[in-house]
Design a protein around this nucleic acid. Sequence first.
DNA 1: TATTTTATTGCGAATAAGTTGCAATAATAC
DNA 2: GTATTATTGCAACTTATTCGCAATAAAATA
Lengths: 125, 125
Amino acid sequence: MNRRNTPTKEAILDLLSNSTKALSQDAIERQINIKINRATIYRVLNRFCDDDVVHKIVAEDGKQYFAVCKKCENPQEVIQHHFHFRCLLCDTIECLQVPVEYSFPNGYEVQNANCVLSGVCNDCS
Amino acid sequence: MNRRNTPTKEAILDLLSNSTKALSQDAIERQINIKINRATIYRVLNRFCDDDVVHKIVAEDGKQYFAVCKKCENPQEVIQHHFHFRCLLCDTIECLQVPVEYSFPNGYEVQNANCVLSGVCNDCS
DNA sequence: TATTTTATTGCGAATAAGTTGCAATAATAC
DNA sequence: GTATTATTGCAACTTATTCGCAATAAAATA
């Protein structure tokens, strides 16, 4: 299962890298300047997730959003579990540099976090 | 839009109240001992949410889960934004009495929180 | 460079969760 | 007991995501 470089893959990664927001499949399809099939976009994104190039957030709307992993760009700032913010006005989702912190009862082994706060974002307030 | 008491409504609230887990529509349909239409279950649950009787959690699987609001039972312990835990082994979601805490940059107005941590729960570890 | 291998893509169809319109039913008010 | 209208069941619809399969095209190999 060696990965191959394709225009599709590059275009999607480029778009995500230059976006300040997490993007959904349909946002990517809308914003990208080449024609890519819906199923392909999902497959590319899921591969990115497998390779830890991007991470997936599921919002309250039940949709998947994708954003590049900052920790991959700069391994030193390991912001593994951070909050996401969903603005109800401009309907965007962004990664915040705010770590998710908690103290859990014993016996719980946390492997992943999907934390989305929603309200009005910086730009809209 | 005055609410009416129906067997359906009572049965669903009973089930949720006696469950230690948050339940999805299909879990409710499976666990309940009367036959209720899928659309009806959703409508009842959404009404409960409107009335702050239950709250909705959306997990990484994109599905909606519902749990009774503890704050409604006991208004003194206002656990408004708490963590939820999704066990990947027994595939359940539960409310934890752990508050979601964060310090956000100025300009963000948080209205709601949907925070689900996942891994292995107390029972399964 | 030509050929082979197989990862990737596009297409269409399938799946699954959730919602909606509408007519029938049944709580509640009168 | 009757009228009002919230609630329900049914079927159809929408939307997000996945899957099978054949065609395409990177990358490896000769």
